[in-house]
Design a protein around this nucleic acid. Sequence first.
DNA 1: CTTTGTGCAAACGATTTGCAGGATG
DNA 2: CATCCTGCAAATCGTTTGCACAAAG
Lengths: 142, 142
Amino acid sequence: MQGRQVNQIIQALKDKGLRVTPQRFAVYANLLNRMDHPTAEDILSELNQNAPISSQATVYSSLQALADVGLVREVLLEAGVCRYDANMQPHHHFRCRCCGRIEDIAWDQIQGITLSGFRRGLQVEAYEVTVQGTCDCCQEAR
Amino acid sequence: MQGRQVNQIIQALKDKGLRVTPQRFAVYANLLNRMDHPTAEDILSELNQNAPISSQATVYSSLQALADVGLVREVLLEAGVCRYDANMQPHHHFRCRCCGRIEDIAWDQIQGITLSGFRRGLQVEAYEVTVQGTCDCCQEAR
DNA sequence: CTTTGTGCAAACGATTTGCAGGATG
DNA sequence: CATCCTGCAAATCGTTTGCACAAAG
């Protein structure tokens, strides 16, 4: 990790009014550097792979704090599984039904969605498309 | 509930190769007659409101059996909450951030989605739009 | 020095499981 | 009458909580 990135992370936490602790830093940095959408358990085990960095309870509370201030968001694609994503740009998700892999879909790769006036009375604040299918790897493997 | 509907439900279960038991029937009938998207607990308590109809374990296993054969589907809109829906027609969902109410959005009320070729390699099997916002009631209530 | 975060272990809520008896086809 | 389902209670899984101590600003 570059020094610049370290400072950016620290600044982002401070800007949101969160104290910078080694654990919170580690959770956020880990999430920023992953392209998969890990669960709390995934993050915990990766953090503590070599040296003990954080306890389970702290990973959960860090994730909640990060989500509360909008640095991180929950991704719900499977029953009973809560994943996290540090990419706060609006985007969509693809999930492979075969291997469970989750991939981001850039916002402008799905076009032409017309929501306005689809039901008078509902005030839309956000939306997202969830795509289910089969990824390249799983198609090859038959 | 009309006699015709009863027979339709029984036939649907048989067609899918499921045995018709009072509990399974009750779970599916309840889900078909509700417009909200209840959790397993919601269904359990409504079923047993007057007389004891089914145990907790049986509601869970009925829902799983129904989902496995495609008579019912899971709806995931909140972390840690698994809801069920007997409406198998493709449709979208709206969720009110204020009161948590979930409303179906008919498929053709959101138009112009272009998925084809958004990333070569991914084979699309299904997709759905999830809309978050504020419903009429909550806007009035300020 | 005040406030907030951490770690531990116990508590919790939702879902699953093992198993003996009962109902379905 | 073989198979599958139900109910009960115990087990499990992910997440949350209470509390004493430690660290951040």
